[in-house]
Design a protein around this nucleic acid. Structure first.
Length: 426
RNA sequence: GGCGACGUGGCCGAGUGGUUAGGCAGAGGCCUGCAAAGCCUCGUACACCAGUUCGAAUCUGGUCGUCGCCUCCA
C-alpha cells in the first residue's frame, strides 16, 4: 500500500515514492521567546509520529525541526538581553518537547548558527536580481518570481497593503536582511552592514543546510502557509533549488472556538498540560483529531483522553487473547495518516485482547510505555495479601480497612480470578 | 476586500453516493461480600435551501455560521 499525504500546494492527497526511499522532512518550529504553549507542540508531535510511521514502513527518514532564535518578538520581549532570552527559551523548548518522550528530531538547527549560509543565500539572490539591497536592508523582489502565490493561493495584487516603506520597490517585497536598529542587541556582519536575517530566509537556509536543495516534506502550522512558506518557497526556487515536494500543514489547536494564541492570552503551556494531565493523555488527545483539521482543546477533551489512556493501560495488564489485523492499522495510517481511525483500531485491539499489536501500535505514538508493569513495594503487597486472607475469613470490615490503607499508599488493589493485582493509583 | 479551512448524535471526533466509526458522558444489566477493573445492551446524527441520482449526510450550486491567514503567531 502506498503512503499518501495531503499536500497544501496541490490541495490533494499525493502518493509518496515507494519505500525504501529517502525522506527529508523539514518542520518549522516556534520562535522562542517564552514557554511554548500546547499548540506549539502539535507540529513537533505530529511529525515525530509521522517519522516513526514512515520508518515503520521502510523509509529512511531525516526529521529536521528548526528553532527560530532570531526574530522581532525576541527583541520586544527581552530588550537589551535578546541573546540571553533566546538561549534560555531554546532550552525551555527543548525541555518541553523532550517531556513528551518521543524520539527527538534528527537535527534541530538554530538560526543563530546558520548565519553564513543565510548570508550566502541572500548574496545569491541579489546576484540573480531576485533581491536588492536598500539602505542596509535587503528585500526579495516579488515581481521577479513568477509563481509567487502558488502555494497559498494568495494573489500578490490582493495582499493587504502593509505600512509603506520607502526602502522597498514594491510594498509586497519582504525583508531578507534587516539593518540593525536602535535597541537591538544582537546583530551580525554582512556585505550590507550590521544586521540580522529576516524570518523566511532563515528557514530556506536551515532547510538547505540540513537536507540539501531538494527534500520531500516541508511541514508546519496552517498559519504559516502565508507568508512564511510562500516566501521560503519563492526564495529557494528563485535560485534554482527544487526545495520541498510536499507541503504539509497541521490544523491549529483551538481553545473555546478561538485559535490558541499568545496575544489572545488563552494559552496552556506544554509544561502545564503535561503537569496536569500527563504526557500520555496529551499525546492521546492529539491522536483524536486528524492532523490537517483544527482540534478543540478543552478540559473535557483532556479528561476524555486521560480516561482512554487508563483503559488502554488496563487492557495491557491483561493477557493476549487474540491477534490483531496490523494491516487494517497500516491502511488507515498510510491513507493520509489518519490517527483517529488508528485510535479506533487500538481500542478494538484493547477490547479483544490483541495486546501484541496494541503495544506495537501504541509505540508508534510514543505510548509504548503504557504496557510497562510497575511492581508494588513488598509492604503494599503484604497488605493486599492480608486482605485476601481477611476476605477468605469473610471479615469484610477488615478487608475494607486494608483496601483503604492500600489506597493511602498510592496503590489500587483489584481482585482478579487468582488473587489480586496492584496498580499505581490514578 | 482577497485567499483558505471547517460546520456530523449531550460532548470530542473519523468516514462515506446505498452496508458498525471510535472515544467520553449518560441509562440498564452481568461480574463482585461491597467496590474497583472488565464485559454486555441502549443513541439511527451529519448547518440550511435547491439541484443531479433509483438512492445524498457523502456530488453540484447557493445561503447562513465558525475559524485561520493577508510580511514576520505552530
Amino acid at each position: 500500500m502506498t503512503v499518501r499525504l495531503y499536500d497544501t500546494a496541490t490541495r490533494s492527497v499525493v502518493d509518496l515514492p515507494p519505500a525504501p526511499a529517502q525522506v527529508g522532512m523539514y518542520v518549522c518550529g516556534p520562535t522562542v521567546y517564552q514557554r511554548a504553549h500546547i499548540g506549539n507542540a502539535v507540529p513537533f508531535v505530529i511529525f515525530a509520529w509521522l517519522r516513526n510511521w514512515l520508518r515503520e514502513r521502510g523509509y529512511d527518514v531525516t526529521y529536521v525541526h528548526n528553532i527560530t532564535d532570531i526574530n522581532d518578538k525576541i527583541y520586544e520581549v527581552a530588550p537589551g538581553a535578546s541573546a540571553e532570552r533566546a538561549r534560555a527559551a531554546t532550552g525551555w523548548y527543548l525541555e518541553d518537547t523532550a517531556s513528551f518522550r518521543l524520539e527527538m528530531p534528527d537535527e534541530q538547527p538554530l538560526a543563530t548558527e546558520t548565519i553564513p549560509e543565510i548570508v550566502a543565500l541572500i548574496e545569491e539572490l541579489v546576484a540573480s536580481c531576485h533581491a536588492y539591497a536598500s539602505g542596509g536592508d535587503v528585500y526579495f523582489r516579488v515581481s521577479s518570481f513568477e509563481t509567487y502565490g502558488a502555494l497559498s493561493g494568495q494573489r500578490p495584487d490582493q495582499v493587504e497593503e502593509q505600512e509603506p516603506s520607502a526602502l522597498k520597490e514594491d510594498p509586497r517585497d519582504f525583508a531578507l536582511w534587516k539593518a540593525t536598529k536602535e535597541g537591538e542587541d544582537t546583530f551580525w556582519e554582512s556585505p550590507w552592514g550590521l544586521g540580522r536575517p529576516g524570518w523566511h530566509i532563515e528557514c530556506s537556509a536551515m532547510a538547505e543546510k540540513t537536507l540539501g536543495p531538494e527534500f520531500l516534506i516541508h511541514g508546519g502550522g496552517l498559519d504559516l502557509v502565508f507568508p512564511h512558506h510562500e516566501n521560503e518557497r519563492a526564495q529557494s526556487l528563485a535560485v534554482g533549488r527544487p526545495f520541498a515536494k510536499i507541503w504539509m500543514h497541521n490544523g491549529l489547536l483551538r481553545f473555546v472556538g478561538e485559535k490558541m494564541s499568545k496575544s489572545v492570552g488563552n494559552v496552556a503551556t506544554i509544561q502545564e498540560v503535561i503537569a496536569e494531565w500527563g504526557r500520555e493523555a496529551a499525546l492521546l488527545f492529539l491522536m483524536t483529531g486528524h492532523w490537517h483539521k483544527p482540534l478543540e482543546f478543552s478540559h473535557e477533551a483532556m479528561t476524555a483522553a486521560s480516561v482512554q489512556v487508563e483503559s488502554l493501560r488496563n487492557a495491557l495488564r491483561g493477557e493476549t487473547r487474540s491477534k490483531g489485523d496490523w494491516n487494517a492499522f497500516a491502511t488507515v495510517l498510510d491513507d493520509d495518516f489518519n490517527t483517529p481511525a488508528a485510535l479506533a483500531i487500538l481500542h478494538r485491539w484493547a477490547r479483544e485482547g490483541a495486546l501484541v499489536e496494541l503495544q506495537r501500535g501504541l509505540a508508534i505514538f510514543g505510548l509504548g510505555e503504557l504496557g510497562d508493569i510497575v511492581e508494588a513495594p513488598a509492604e503494599v503487597a503484604a497488605l493486599a495479601q492480608a486482605r485476601v486472607e481477611a476476605r477468605a475469613a469473610r471479615d469484610f470490615a477488615e478487608a475494607d480497612r486494608l483496601r483503604d490503607e492500600i489506597t493511602r499508599t498510592g496503590w489500587e488493589v483489584r481482585d482478579v480470578p487468582d488473587g489480586f493485582e496492584l496498580v499505581p493509583g490514578s
